[in-house]
Design a protein around this nucleic acid. Structure first.
Lengths: 157, 157
DNA sequence: TAAATTCCTGACTAATTTAGTCAGGAATTA
DNA sequence: TAATTCCTGACTAAATTAGTCAGGAATTTA
């Protein structure tokens, strides 16, 4: 069982945006450099996040992406599902027709696993991590290392 | 996030064996036909399950595979890990060097998810499902449909 | 209005993983 | 000795993931 980088990248990028909310929109170029994710690939992911209603794009200089709703209303489950990762572990998509129209031997097991997983991830909202001191330490370090937001008046205020 | 058929097949096959424990060893040919899994592919999986110490092979006519230890001591986590599926969702394998030698922004998140997942799956033992009436119903149906164990004296006793 | 910046889109390619095939050998039982 | 079944390794096909590339659209700033 694995999490593809697709889901991992999406959550990381969203976290980056959430952590810089007060600074204003965050560019994909910044996220790309800072988190080590290909820019073109990020663009693909953000097309989905936008369709999923999680972010808003702001074009032009000074633009970037920002959260479409407050960080405490965006869960990790929302993000992962937006980029097409399923949280459903059943073979049949929960329909119960996995073995010749009937439930297979392990249907119940995967179903319960999926519920557990979904419950866990949908209870974690972005703001929980944004408010953690250890995470904020990390971000500050990164920002300095890459000289982010030096050209943004808002960032200083 | 997804569970590959590798893990799903392995757990299904193990469940099949556990459910027929009293009948004796179960052949891969039977599992293949009954659960709709390619025989050659099953053989690959069982090579790993054997190396993982979860099953024992019995060669020759009347042979097959049986559990290497009691069903209440084999967890779903054991099975999945035996066939090389990881339950670790971190990028770094838990080492914490995901972002230039340091923990990445989302390290903690994936780490906690992995713990949750592992805890859940390692608490589910095969015997829990073996003792469920609904599952036993299913198996009985399957056995009749495919005429399994008609040639086994033990099965009748 | 022109130039710079940034989002935005779609088509394409490369790499990896998953799933499955095939051929043949080894042990065991009857 | 013949049948059955495990057991192994090498190979192939399909799917998914990850990433590239080229170019256009909107917006801001000078």
């Amino acid at each position: 069982m694995r999490l593809s980088t697709k889901g991992r990248y999406a959550v990381t990028a969203m976290m980056d945006i959430a952590l810089h909310q007060r600074v204003g929109p965050v560019t994909l170029a910044d996220i790309s450099q800072c988190q080590g994710i290909s820019l073109s690939y990020l663009e693909q992911l953000f097309a989905k996040l936008r369709k999923g209603g999680l972010v808003e794009g702001v074009r032009g200089p000074g633009g970037g992406y920002r959260l479409a709703r407050p960080a405490n209303q965006i869960s990790v489950a929302d993000i992962i599902q937006s980029v097409d990762e399923k949280l459903d572990m059943t073979k049949c998509g929960g329909r119960g027709n996995c073995s010749q129209g009937e439930k297979c031997l392990t249907h119940q097991l995967w179903f319960e696993l999926s519920c557990n997983l979904y419950r866990f991830l949908s209870e974690i909202k972005l703001d929980q991590y944004v408010n953690r001191p250890d995470i904020n330490e990390l971000v500050k370090k990164q920002d300095i290392q890459y000289g982010r937001f030096l050209n943004r008046p808002q960032a200083i205020a």
